[in-house]
Amino acid sequence: MSNVDLIIEERAADIGNFMVGRLLPFRKKRMVGPFIYIDHMGPVKLNERQNFDVLPHPHIGLSTLTFLFEGSIMHRDTIGNEEEIKPGAVNWMTAGKGIVHSERTPEYLRDSDLFMHGLQIWVALPKDKEQMEPQFSHIEKSEIPAWSEGDVDFKLVAGEALGRKSPVPVFSKLFMIEIKSKSEQTLKIGDQLYGESGLYILEGSIKEGGHEYGEKQILVAKDSTLCEFTISANSTVYIFGGEPFPEKRYIDWNFVSSDKELIEEAKKKWEDQSFGKIEGDEEYIPYPTRK
Rank of each mutant, 00 (worst) to 15 (best):
E83V: 15
V152C: 13
E82R: 15
S197K: 06
L65E: 12
V157D: 02
E143I: 02
H101E: 11
W147T: 12
P145L: 05
L162P: 01
M132D: 10
T186F: 05
R104Y: 08
P167E: 11
G190H: 02
V168D: 07
E83F: 10
M93T: 08
M116A: 08
K97T: 01
I85V: 10
L193V: 04
L174H: 00
P126H: 00
P126R: 05
P169C: 03
S102I: 00
H138L: 15
L68A: 10
K97C: 04
S183L: 15
K173D: 14
F154A: 06
M74F: 07
K165G: 03
I177M: 06
K173Q: 10
A95N: 05
H117L: 00
F67C: 03
S183F: 12
T94C: 12
G150E: 01
G71P: 03
P145D: 09
E196W: 04
E103I: 10
G118K: 08
S142N: 14
F136Q: 07
K127P: 06
F171V: 06
Y108I: 10
A89H: 10
A95T: 06
H101C: 14
I73T: 02
V90T: 09
L109I: 08
T105A: 08
K127H: 05
F67K: 06
E149M: 11
E196T: 02
L156A: 07
I139A: 09
N91M: 09
K173H: 08
P126D: 04
L174V: 06
P126A: 01
A161S: 09
K180P: 01
R164T: 03
D191P: 08
I79S: 05
V168Q: 08
P134D: 06
G163Q: 14
M74C: 13
L114M: 13
E70K: 15
R110P: 11
F115P: 01
F69V: 07
W122L: 02
F175H: 05
F115Y: 08
L65M: 15
V90N: 04
K180T: 09
L174P: 01
E84A: 14
A146P: 06
T186H: 12
D111W: 04
Q185P: 01
L62S: 05
Q185H: 04
F136V: 05
H117I: 01
E82L: 15
I179R: 08
G198T: 02
H75I: 12
I189N: 02
A124G: 15
E143S: 14
D113Y: 08
K127I: 04
A95H: 00
M93L: 09
A95Y: 04
F171Y: 13
I73V: 12
I73M: 06
V90M: 03
I85T: 05
S172T: 15
E83G: 06
R164E: 13
G163M: 13
K141S: 13
S102K: 03
T66Q: 14
